[in-house]
């Protein structure tokens, strides 16, 4: 049945899976900060990514700014937006015991962003077409998509940057402390609002990066992002909470899983396989695949 399998094919499949999973991973690292510190099921993540993709599109179309050069602009704008979203929408709700409220604000925000985009920029699909769109780099008989490779590089750099930030800077340490134990963090005098604002700013900033990676690789329309919200959530659960690198790796695992199952089973079942694995992980190793089991009381 699989007589056409060769080593090269398998290697290509492997690489494709990793590059594809990076897209999920990029979305997941942003989420890991937001979900990690505030436990918000932030379903509007995907919509924000698409919003950033549109920003990238407009910068490219109107001002001829290359998508990769727009990283600083979009990253910064996204961070400001993130801080704004937190201060404007989630500041009060995060304190509350009831998690439904943050979930619903996220849903409301998703409705709002998706449909604002549809009204302002029409629901027709958009895409960025540059010289390097759909070009690939041949490496020893394998073809590696350029835009996806760039996405991979961006994801790696972002992960490294965020990890360094969390480990080396005082603010970062505070964010990390808060994501591990918010009560204890409060006791040692960390202001939760400050930490949350930072976490949100970085989280949404990473959405900006994900938006750029997405807009160079895919055509998109206002409703394109929802699947990324879900998949990022899964990637996060696979990788384990509170670890940025885990989130990226979770995304890559998810991507590889989908890629392999759509090759060996069939395209339509890839989603079922990834959700099935997700459920199994939730049941048997809810702290994530990559976290060494620590029993929490």
């Amino acid at each position: 049945m699989f007589d056409y399998l060769t080593f090269g094919l398998l290697a290509q499949l492997f690489i494709n899976g990793i590059l594809f999973g990076t897209m999920y991973g990029l979305a997941a690292i942003g989420l890991s900060l937001i979900f990690g510190t505030m436990r918000i099921i932030f379903l509007s993540q995907g919509a924000v990514i698409i919003l950033m993709a549109y920003c990238c599109y407009w910068l490219f179309t109107l001002f001829k700014i290359d998508p990769y050069l727009s990283i600083p602009i979009i990253g910064l704008a996204a961070m400001v937006l993130g801080a704004g979203i937190y201060q404007g929408l989630f500041r009060r709700a995060v304190k509350m015991e009831d998690k439904n409220i943050t979930l619903l604000i996220a849903v409301g925000l998703m409705f709002l962003i998706e449909n604002l985009m549809a009204v302002m920029w029409t629901p027709n699909p958009r895409s960025i077409s540059t010289g390097y769109t759909s070009s690939s780099i041949p490496v020893g008989g394998l073809a590696i998509s350029f835009t996806r490779l760039m996405g991979f590089v961006m994801a790696m750099l972002s992960t490294a940057g965020v990890t360094l930030f969390l480990k080396r800077t005082l603010v970062g340490k505070a964010v990390r402390a808060a994501s591990e134990d918010i009560e204890a963090a409060r006791l040692v005098g960390i202001s939760p609002h400050w930490v949350n604002t930072i976490a949100f700013a970085i989280g949404i900033g990473l959405c900006g990066i994900a938006g750029i990676a997405l807009s160079t690789t895919y055509p998109f329309d206002p409703y394109f992002g929802f699947i990324f919200s879900l998949k990022a959530m899964i990637a996060l659960a696979l990788g384990g909470l509170g670890s940025v690198f885990g989130a990226l790796l979770g995304g890559i695992i998810l991507g590889t899983l989908e890629s392999w199952s759509s090759f060996f089973i069939s395209g339509g079942w890839a989603d079922a396989v990834s959700y099935g694995v997700f459920l199994l992980v939730l049941l048997f190793k809810p702290e994530g695949l990559l976290v060494r089991s620590v029993k929490k009381v």
């Binding site: 056409y4 094919l9 594809f20 895919y218 699947i227 395209g267 890839a270 989603d271």
Partner: peptide, 21 residues
């Protein structure tokens, strides 16, 4: 003969299969 999941984001597996055949 492959079904095509709506909104799937990666077709490289499908393309590899086509290439192999």
């Amino acid at each position: 003969d492959e079904p095509w999941a709506i909104g799937a984001k990666d077709y490289s597996s499908m393309i590899l299969k086509m290439k192999a055949k």
